[in-house]
Design a protein around this nucleic acid. Structure first.
Lengths: 202, 202
DNA sequence: AGGATTAATGACTTATAGGTCAGTAAGTAT
DNA sequence: ATACTTACTGACCTATAAGTCATTAATCCT
């Protein structure tokens, strides 16, 4: 008659736990979050946590890796496949993509990496290779394509994709620290894109 | 005969302790740094720490506030007093100032604020008002002066001083996370300044 | 149904680090 | 010199949170 006190759901637990951990870390950071608190959010006991993740550190790494979005790859593919002009592509999909980042899980991961990165260099490497490096390469490729097509002229921008990323990073940090004193990050990114395009258009 | 085991130096202790704490926090972050470790670096006992700072948290706040550089004010004054053209001033003193930030204590404080800021909102406010807000105001003033003198034309840049700051922030974050994969932050900042000036020059 | 398997629990152990305080000795005044 | 003040020490206390494990019960299998 009595309902079972719990269900055994081996398949789903890891995801549920990392999702709960993500939320908890997002609110309080890694160091200030207790494993027991994550367990509570995930609706499991503390002991179970250690059945799926050997240590709190391993849980942390799992959380960070779970946010390695495939969106980056998606964007790269779109670059090659699109019919749009390079300028239209940058002002459209690329800009939209940029605008979404400050409110995305990526912002949380950036904060976690800045906080704890010193102690987990392999995790930083992982993120650099899978997100940063590929993202920059995608932008570089996009600009190069524009040059090949005669839409853009060669310039310093070609090997400084960071120019596109800078306003995104500032917006992320701003959101993390000063969400109270908000400013228009969308317009900010648009303006930067304008600056760059004005400079490189033929 | 025997040398005294310690000296009583009430005047100097606070500074020495915050300096030691700054170094320790810079290396390991706030949460991972033990009060005893700071005491060791400062060459004092753990007990003495609590004579000058009631809690670890208070020590943290003292460290952050100790880095509120007056350089910002110095820069503001220079803006008003200089004989240089606005462009020369930006390409000279302003750019030099920007280039120095990623290697300065400010970078450490930014990391600390990102890590622990959620728990110390008053500290974040303090930094916003004393550094961020004033810094942005100084840049805005500089651009406005250029417009008044007819050197610059009015544009979106006037009320987006963040455009100057973005490459600095990216460089700081890059230094914190990816110092292993270094890139030329100086050239990066120069290029951004070039972009902006090209756009706004009359 | 009943036995076997193992996901899941939660009370327990233990290490760590923040914080305290009774005692000590460096400096000062008389 | 001697008495006095107080900066300073370091052993100690204690709360917290990571990690363990004997036990329980949900599910599977025949």
């Amino acid at each position: 008659m009595s309902e079972p006190r719990y269900q055994r759901r081996k398949q789903d637990r890891p995801q549920e736990i990392t999702a709960a951990a993500f939320d908890a870390f997002a609110e309080n950071g890694y160091a200030a979050t207790r494993v027991e608190e994550v367990a509570r959010r995930a609706g499991v006991s503390k002991g179970l946590m250690y059945l799926y993740f050997k240590t709190k550190e391993e849980l942390f790494k799992a959380v960070v890796k779970s946010v390695v979005v495939r969106r980056v790859d998606a964007l790269i593919d779109t670059v090659e496949g699109t019919e749009m002009s390079s300028e239209a592509f940058i002002r459209g999909p690329v800009l939209d993509f940029m605008k979404r980042i400050p409110d995305s899980p990526v912002a949380v991961v950036i904060r976690l990496l800045i906080s704890e990165g010193q102690r987990y260099p392999d995790l930083v490497d992982y993120y650099y290779e899978n997100v940063v490096s590929r993202g920059l390469a995608a932008i570089t490729r996009l600009v190069e394509r524009g040059v090949e097509r005669g839409e853009f002229k060669p310039s310093a921008v070609t090997d400084l994709p960071h120019l596109f990323v800078a306003p995104v990073v500032l917006s992320v940090i701003w959101r993390i620290l000063f969400s109270k004193n908000s400013f228009d990050t969308d317009r900010f990114m648009e303006t930067q894109i304008n600056l760059i395009l004005t400079q490189i258009k033929t």
